[in-house]
Amino acid sequence: MSTETTLILFKPDAVTQGLVGTVLARYEKEGFKVRGLKVMALSDEILADHYSHIADKPFFPSVRGFMQESPVVALALEGENVISRVRDLLGPTDSKEAAAGTIRGDFGDKGEDSKMRNICHASDGPEAAEAELKRFFNEGEII
């Protein structure tokens, strides 16, 4: 087991439904430590960078629009194997496929936006976590 730090983004659906504290409590119950936390509005530039793998797709404007509906909460979370464990806690990207008891299964959209309105983004590997933490946190903001 190894200690890692990962990025979690509480998406606008989590923020507007008042679920940030509820979901954060699940992470803390697992023993993960908060190392950075901030509320931020996402610019077109940061979204184009973060979603560079889909920025040329016809559905990207709707993703950008959703991510700019409200501020998001960026979280740097540390723990043993936190990257894979957080992804297990979240459940699959598509909330309709997520089991009850997972974050997306309990709180994610079950309609046609179930892949986008799924409460949180989480880094999918160590390299992604490193890049994403640098994208959303400035030097000195992760303690």
Rank of each mutant, 00 (worst) to 15 (best):
T16S: 13
L90D: 09
A99L: 12
E78R: 02
P12Y: 09
F60E: 02
K33T: 12
L90P: 05
D124I: 03
R64G: 00
K38A: 12
E130Y: 08
A98S: 13
T3R: 06
F66I: 12
I103Y: 06
E45T: 08
G91M: 15
R64P: 07
E127K: 04
S123K: 01
L77S: 02
R104Y: 12
S70N: 15
D94W: 10
G65A: 07
V63W: 08
V15E: 01
S52C: 05
A55C: 03
L19E: 07
Y51G: 11
D94N: 12
I54L: 07
P92Y: 11
A74L: 00
I119Q: 04
D113N: 15
K11L: 14
P12M: 11
K115Q: 15
T3Y: 07
L9M: 13
E45K: 15
E139Y: 10
M116G: 03
F66T: 08
S114M: 04
K110I: 00
G101K: 00
F137D: 06
I143P: 14
L19K: 09
D124N: 03
E127W: 07
E112F: 11
A98M: 09
E127H: 10
D49C: 02
G79H: 00
P92F: 10
F10L: 06
V23E: 06
L9T: 06
K134R: 15
I142T: 03
F32P: 02
V23N: 12
V34A: 09
Q17S: 07
F32V: 04
C120Q: 09
E132Q: 05
T16G: 00
A98D: 05
D49L: 12
P126V: 09
V39K: 11
T6N: 14
F136C: 13
S70I: 11
D124A: 05
E139F: 12
P71K: 12
L47Y: 05
L47M: 14
E45P: 01
L47H: 10
I142Q: 10
P61E: 01
L133I: 04
A25M: 03
D113A: 14
E45W: 07
I142N: 06
A41E: 11
T6A: 14
T102M: 05
A128K: 10
R117P: 00
F136M: 10
P12S: 09
D56Q: 15
A129H: 13
G101T: 09
R135D: 02
E139A: 06
K57D: 03
T93E: 12
V73I: 11
L133W: 02
S84Q: 14
K29E: 08
S52N: 10
V63M: 10
G105H: 04
A131G: 14
G108D: 01
Q17M: 12
T93D: 13
D13P: 09
L89I: 08
E97H: 00
S84K: 13
L90C: 15
V39A: 14
Y51T: 03
A129I: 10
H50D: 06
I119G: 01
R104M: 15
D109V: 11
V20F: 06
R85L: 12
E139D: 15
K57V: 05
L75G: 02
N138W: 01
T6K: 10
Y51S: 03
F10I: 01
G65I: 01
R117V: 07
S52M: 00
D106M: 13
G36D: 04
G105P: 01
S43D: 03
L42A: 02
E132T: 01
L75C: 06
V82N: 00
L7S: 03
A131H: 10
D13Y: 14
I8R: 01
P126Y: 10
L77A: 07
A98T: 06
